[in-house]
Design a protein around this nucleic acid. Structure first.
Length: 224
DNA sequence: GCCCAGGTGGGTA
DNA sequence: TACCCACATGGG
């Protein structure tokens, strides 16, 4: 598995190059983006972030000061805007309570404790919490998303129904505990998921993972 | 008109 | 555990 995961990384990196995630100007913006990107394309998130920036609302204090309806209007492009407006306010409230509104200090706390606090916020699940830990706090936490499940399943390494934590342990146990590596790896998996291969086209001839499938011999196909 | 995008939580069996 | 559903925009 160790060798397999290394091979996947090497191939994706060679194919897509460095992803330079997370695209944001500040750690606070990463947190906002992590919530807004839930089940939405990044293009829409960019619009919402631009709205927030234009409204001078990219701080915990500013978001808390905004009426719910106004905040919802700004982040409308990210879908589920009512729920997400509340999620943003709740995480800002947490930052205020924990660290007096200082995002940097908020992120510096012990990772396990930070993760529990984030997960306690309604609307922040494991993937969002781990994205914040990795991309905002720089902790070596591997982020699992749908693409990760699908890719491993396509390659015959999993049955596709493993729980989040199981896949996370798999990556963390077989890779060097390096935030920069985890950062790039997750971003590459998403990049691959976008182009894919995993969607409609059963076999993309240019798939960078072709030939890696555990049962490639019987199907002649690989990742897709 | 259709499908899907860098999810989460609540309900039910 | 495993499914189902609500949430509810914008681009291809």
């Amino acid at each position: 598995m160790r060798e397999f995961l290394r091979e996947v990384y090497e191939r994706l990196y060679a194919h897509f190059g460095r992803r330079r995630w997370w695209s944001a100007d500040s750690a606070f913006e990463v947190i906002v983006g992590a919530i807004l990107t839930q089940q939405v394309s990044w293009k829409n998130v960019e619009k919402a972030i631009a709205n927030l920036r234009a409204g001078n609302a990219l701080s915990a204090g500013a978001i808390l000061a905004l009426p719910h309806a106004e905040l919802g209007l700004l982040i409308r492009p990210t879908r589920y805007y009512n729920q997400k407006a509340q999620r943003l306010k709740d995480v800002c409230l947490l930052i205020n309570e924990e660290s007096g509104g200082d995002t940097g200090r908020f992120l510096q706390q012990e990772p396990g404790s930070l993760r529990r606090r984030l997960l306690a916020v309604r609307g922040i699940g494991k993937e969002t919490a781990d994205s914040i830990l990795l991309y905002a706090a720089g902790r070596p936490v591997f982020v699992i998303d749908h693409y990760t499940h699908r890719i491993l399943q396509r390659l015959g390494r999993t049955h596709g129904r493993e729980p989040y934590d199981e896949l996370q342990r798999l990556f963390e146990a077989h890779l060097p505990r390096d935030p920069a590596l985890f950062n790039e790896y997750h971003a590459l998996l998403v990049a691959h998921g976008h182009h894919l291969c995993l969607k409609t086209a059963p076999r993309c001839p240019e798939c960078p993972l072709s030939g890696l499938c555990a049962h490639a011999s019987q199907t002649g196909g690989a990742a897709g």
